[in-house]
Design a protein around this nucleic acid. Sequence first.
RNA 1: GGACCGAGUGGGGCAAUCGCGCCGUAUGUUGCCGAAAGGUAUUACGGUGAGGAAAGUCCGGGCAUCAUAGAGCAGGAUAACGGAUAACGUCCGUCCGAGGCGACUCGCGGGAAAGUGCAACAGAAAUAAACCGCCGUAUCCGUACGGUAAGGAUGGAAAGGCGAGGUAAGAGCUCACCCACUUCUAUGGUAACAUAGAUUUGCUGUAAACCCUAUCCGAUGCAACACCUUGACCAUCGGGUCACACCGAUAGGCUGCUCGCCAAACGUCAUGGUGGCAGAGCCAUAAGGCUUGAACUGCGCGGCGACACGCAGUGAAGAUAGAUGAUUGCCGCACGCAAGUGUACAGAACCCGGCUUACAAGCUCGGUCAAACA
RNA 2: GGAGAAGUACUCAAGUGGUGAAGAGGCGCCCCUGCUAAGGGUGUAGGUCGGGUAACCGGCGCGAAGGUUCAAAUCCUUUCUUCUCCG
Length: 125
Amino acid sequence: MKFRAICENHLYSKAYAKGKRAVTSALAVYVLPDYSAKKLAKAHPEGRTVNRIGLTVSTKLGGAVVRSRVRRILREGLRALEREKPLKVGFLIVIAARSSAVKLKSTDIKQNLNIAFEKLGMFKL
RNA sequence: GGACCGAGUGGGGCAAUCGCGCCGUAUGUUGCCGAAAGGUAUUACGGUGAGGAAAGUCCGGGCAUCAUAGAGCAGGAUAACGGAUAACGUCCGUCCGAGGCGACUCGCGGGAAAGUGCAACAGAAAUAAACCGCCGUAUCCGUACGGUAAGGAUGGAAAGGCGAGGUAAGAGCUCACCCACUUCUAUGGUAACAUAGAUUUGCUGUAAACCCUAUCCGAUGCAACACCUUGACCAUCGGGUCACACCGAUAGGCUGCUCGCCAAACGUCAUGGUGGCAGAGCCAUAAGGCUUGAACUGCGCGGCGACACGCAGUGAAGAUAGAUGAUUGCCGCACGCAAGUGUACAGAACCCGGCUUACAAGCUCGGUCAAACA
RNA sequence: GGAGAAGUACUCAAGUGGUGAAGAGGCGCCCCUGCUAAGGGUGUAGGUCGGGUAACCGGCGCGAAGGUUCAAAUCCUUUCUUCUCCG
């Protein structure tokens, strides 16, 4: 499973301002329907619609080593969850790490994500 | 064995399952583009994938661009001597000074006898001297004038030290010895400098104050760079023309400044790189630059050494919101009776050479001191 | 990634070598008022350590550490934090 990343800063601010929100002890997840998903699907080689994902880890959490570890854990947890329960497609998903995420394992992150996406109703039926 | 000095090494390991970037090979009929050739998504296999500091950005280079980068001025940097190097503020060796019994360590270590400035407070006086004291002369016995740096007090710093001569009292004023210093000579050394001798002088400190001397430096940095986008405006004087055009000078711009260069553009004003209605519009926000380089490893050889030379071998990240990981088990190390807890500092972003700062445990080599204790 | 700027009481800050580090707001106390606000007066302490019954005295203190100087908030070096800018 490959992720398509959100590159533009304004999309992040849109997601914070307008998106649905779900917060757990380690995470905050923001979800917003992706209006340009159809365009991206044309650009995609297989014509699929995909979620665009952005990970946010602020400097408050630690140095570069700590932050990149948190980012990897987030990605790993999301990947594991996606394999079990596929998500709905065509959304912007921004995941922001909170300070307690530094000490956690990827399995804990997976549980956190599970709770958050359950709240938001993002799983396919 | 102890105490200490110096130089280096080191940066946890193994297995299973899942996963990521790049490169190569195959696949690519059934996905996509194409008339085709072919290209590509995908999938499989193989290879490879953070550091000693990747950090701070404090120096030095390579590389790239610039309205020519050339000259001069300004400005900046460095500062014992000799060498190493692409270069350096780095490194090596030596000298001098300071510290240590010693191994050894530390030093922004040129010039204050070119010039200028500053030295608060205190003190009579701060680069120049008379407050007290001492001595002489005058005296209305209060003091006034003159001489004097031996003594006093202040200060970070007070006019070389001690003795003798000398004098009204004193003073390098004179002499001997000592100290510092200038210049010269001899010897040793490439040189800084050292030693010895002669000679002048007796000089406050500060150059991380200005400055002087010597040497070096064009500016900007990979967001460099390859024409950023679009629209509008553009003055004055002289020559020239029917009027434009055109030419010259200025305003304005480029550079820290001048010479120099541009002048309907290299000038001026707005505009876009995301406040919302509306994630609209545009597509050079793509793709490159991007890793084979003063490279690393081993051996030989020259040199006290930094380092140089020769031979052989190796291919060792190149991403672009940013890969290099996750989970589990076992072992190692530290603390703890045990359960257990901890396992440093820290993440490439154009690339090298240094410096500085951060850093858990462990290991190796060379040397010094004392010979007390076992 | 690169280029710069700034750190001084609780806050805003002045001070570019010389006593004892200006000033304003804030804060405390007093006056005014039946009470409060506003207003007026007066003080605060620069923190910390040591000594002293106390008044007060001494040391180190201008983000941190080291150096130059007789003397450093100021000059030099290293370092930490915060902020700004970039085709």
